[in-house]
Simulated scan of single mutants.
Amino acid sequence: MTIDGKTAVLVHLACPAAHLQTPQRFNPRCVARQINAVLVPWQVKPDHLALTMNALRHAESLAGAIVTIPHKETCARLCDRLEGVAETLQVANVIRREADGTLTGRILDGEGFVGGLRERGIALQGRSALIVGAGGVALAIAAALIEAGVTRLRVANRTAARAEAMVDRLRQLGSGSVALEVGQADPTGFDLAVNATSLGMHDGDALPIPADLITPGMTVAEVVMVPKVTPLLQEAADRGAATVPGEAMITGQIDPFIDFVLGTARDATELNKD
């Protein structure tokens, strides 16, 4: 990769940032597609996010940003406009800087997550799903699962009020064919159980789902990417369940990230003409 004065820069907003795996996939893909762009991790504390977002509006070499924990909902509120389901859910994980400095956000987490399941032959139509967590990534995944045809979806979260708020937002999607509920992180009777929290990222974290309730025949999926095999996934595999690592969600988003921020209408080489 050659970086020069015309390179379009994207920043990956996170806190912490040491675990990020997207730049390692994004940058080689830009090389393969002959796009003059680079994605750089940026660790930004929540208290400084608004100031950072405002600064990005004035950086003319900046094409956009990818957003991860814990910034997805706050970034959505700081965007000038949201596209697609991001507008309804008020959550974003990718931002495009327009020529006038305004910021447009979308959410691709759900699309990537469902794509990762389908690549592994996991059917979703008519199935049931448990999602543990009620943050931005959980919300996006839930919306995508509803669109993919699940008929029952439970949200479990440490703070029940936050889970209730998430279910209320999902109802705004207008899908009356899905039974939405708030409950415990008990996977009994569910086809799919998803950890959409950061639990498992650090040594000593509690399991987000009780291991003794995982049974053969169900699928257990992660959003945590490091370690690749979290304690939850190891417990699930030991009990005969199918497992899907967190990296599957990111792999399915790389080209959509590039297309949204650096699409043909905004060729990266045109961002910084002499």
Results as ranks from 00 to 15, higher is better:
K72L: 09
R57T: 01
L153N: 02
T151W: 00
G121F: 04
I66C: 09
L170M: 07
L108R: 03
R169W: 05
T74Q: 14
D168T: 14
Q125C: 09
A160G: 00
I122R: 06
D109M: 01
T88Q: 08
I95L: 15
L124N: 10
P70L: 12
H48W: 10
A165P: 02
D100T: 00
L78S: 13
A76P: 05
G135K: 08
E60I: 05
E147D: 15
A148V: 04
R127D: 08
L117W: 06
D109N: 11
A165T: 10
I107W: 00
I69A: 11
L153F: 00
T159Q: 03
A86T: 13
L153M: 03
A50V: 13
G105Y: 09
C79K: 03
R120I: 03
H48S: 13
G110F: 07
A76S: 05
L170K: 08
G84P: 11
A160L: 07
R152E: 15
H71E: 03
G101L: 03
R162N: 14
E111S: 09
E111Q: 14
A63L: 07
N54S: 15
G126V: 11
E164T: 11
A161P: 00
A86W: 06
E119L: 11
I131W: 03
R77E: 09
E147I: 07
E98T: 06
T68A: 09
L124P: 10
K45H: 12
A76Y: 06
R81A: 15
L170A: 10
M166A: 15
A156L: 05
A163Q: 04
D47G: 12
R57D: 05
E164G: 08
T74N: 10
I95P: 05
G133H: 04
G136R: 08
T88I: 15
A50W: 01
E73K: 13
V91C: 12
L89Y: 04
E98R: 14
R81H: 08
H58M: 11
A63I: 07
E119P: 00
Q125S: 15
A76N: 04
G135A: 10
D100Y: 01
E60S: 15
P46M: 14
T159V: 08
H71V: 05
A156P: 03
I95M: 14
T52A: 15
R97C: 10
E83S: 11
G121M: 04
D80M: 05
V132I: 12
L108T: 12
L51P: 00
L78F: 11
R127E: 07
N93D: 12
N157K: 04
L56T: 09
R127F: 07
